[in-house]
């Protein structure tokens, strides 16, 4: 079954959306994806608003991480993947053969479930991307490293140990370092795949606070199993089930007045 889900003000105007949604940073239109013969995504249509946090929720295997990984073509690394439909990031067709994947991945940063700092110093982790993009002047790199670490709310904790190994940091600090590394190349979209699932509540709270600040400059798409987290941090939420996007809308509406029975059953914990 194909679904067509878009954010729009309902005709009754029950205070759902006072202003039109911002221009989309990521747009999917009838996006389907197959792993070999197995179809994983079914006709996803959605518009992810710019400079907001959008959460994708749904049970395990619903396709939310698959959808996330389509946005920076991380699924290309898997053999036998086939994609149909259209996906655009800030107007660029992600799956156009002419699209340069390296450039795309600079524009679309990603943070993973398990923090994965390079076995290098804290400084080098953040400077790595800008160096590859050709930044060589030390002063400029210093500036980028400090700005990125400040944006990731890590600067005050590491400013005196920039040249120590990143692996000496705690789990929460490592995850914020990965965020700093991702934003050092000034992406337009930041993808987060279960970024807090390995963190304790205090470290989780820091990352969540961070997202609220980061959305002023970046568009964030987060996949999370934690519905409370989706409710806390996101402005928009999409609920996925069996590879379909069942419902997409303002987070406050989706968590109080979902339109689809399947969404209601999932978020009230009535799905087995």
């Amino acid at each position: 079954m194909l679904v067509n889900v878009q954010v729009q003000a309902p005709p009754d105007g029950q205070g759902r959306l006072e202003t039109p949604p911002p221009a989309p940073a990521v747009e999917a239109h009838q996006l389907s994806m197959w792993y070999g013969q197995a179809q994983a995504l079914f006709g996803i249509t959605m518009a992810v608003p710019r400079h907001h946090v959008t959460a994708l929720i749904g049970p395990s295997g619903c396709g939310k991480s698959t959808l996330l990984r389509c946005i920076n073509r991380l699924n290309d690394l898997i053999d036998g993947v086939k994609v149909a439909g259209r996906l655009r990031v800030a107007g660029t067709d992600v799956y156009d053969p002419a699209t340069d994947v390296v450039t795309l991945r600079r524009r679309v940063g990603m943070v993973f479930q398990k923090s994965n700092p390079f076995p290098k110093t804290i400084y080098e982790n953040v400077a790595y991307g800008p160096r590859i993009l050709g930044v060589t002047r030390r002063v400029e790199l210093d500036e980028i490293v400090e700005r990125s670490l400040r944006s990731a709310a890590l600067w005050d904790e590491v400013r005196d140990r920039l040249h120590e190994s990143a692996l000496s940091l705690s789990g929460g600090q490592q995850q914020r370092l990965c965020i700093a590394r991702a934003i050092a190349v000034e992406p337009e979209v930041l993808l987060m795949d279960e970024p807090c699932s390995a963190l304790d509540p205090a470290a989780t709270a820091k990352i969540e606070d961070l997202m609220t600040g980061l959305k002023e400059r970046y568009t964030i798409v987060i996949v999370t199993h934690n519905m409370q987290q989706a409710a806390r941090v996101s402005d928009f939420t999409g609920f996925m089930l069996l590879g379909e996007l069942v419902e997409f809308g303002l987070t406050r509406d989706l968590f109080t007045t979902p339109r689809d029975r399947r969404t209601e059953d999932y978020i009230t914990g009535r799905f087995g």
């Binding site: 049970p59 395990s60 295997g61 059953d265 009230t268 914990g269 009535r270 799905f271 087995g272």
Partner: peptide
């Protein structure tokens, strides 16, 4: 997983 709703929140209900 199954898409069939199943009441899993007996205590809450």
């Amino acid at each position: 997983m199954s898409a069939e709703p199943r009441h899993t929140r007996v205590a809450f209900d």
